[in-house]
């Protein structure tokens, strides 16, 4: 049970990072932390104590394996996370090019 709470703590660290930090790069790191927390939680949901990897090999019977579905889904979620992180990093670099700063309090053209 405690590992689930540690996942929650990781999620909250990511949220804190997004909400409280002023540097664009640190916000991106916060997003990555949130994604990892969710992915880790997803894998843990499918895990069982002492289970083995869900790989079928010749001459072996399937006993006591962990749930393979979350692992496949987490791979997909990681790929999506990669795309989002790359896109946001590119946008942050272009923002730096235009504004000359990573400080979010100084990037304020939009208001109202």
């Amino acid at each position: 049970m405690s590992v689930y709470f540690l996942c929650l703590v990781l999620f909250c660290i990511g949220l804190y990072c997004i909400l409280r930090k002023r540097n664009l790069i640190k916000i991106i790191i916060g997003i990555a932390i949130i994604e990892y927390a969710v992915n880790l939680f997803f894998v843990l949901v499918g895990y069982k104590m002492g289970g083995r990897a869900p790989i079928l090999s010749p001459g072996q019977s399937i006993v006591d394996m962990v749930d393979p579905l979350p692992q496949a889904l987490v791979l997909t979620a990681i790929v999506i996370g990669l795309a989002v992180t790359a896109l946001i990093a590119a946008i942050a670099m272009r923002v730096y090019e235009k504004y000359g700063t990573f400080d979010i309090t100084k990037i304020r053209r939009l208001k109202g």
Partner: peptide, 13 residues
């Protein structure tokens, strides 16, 4: 391409 684009943007800068 992702790596190239991210790196080249920095080089241009």
């Amino acid at each position: 391409m992702i790596v190239v684009i991210l790196v080249l943007l920095k080089i241009d800068k």
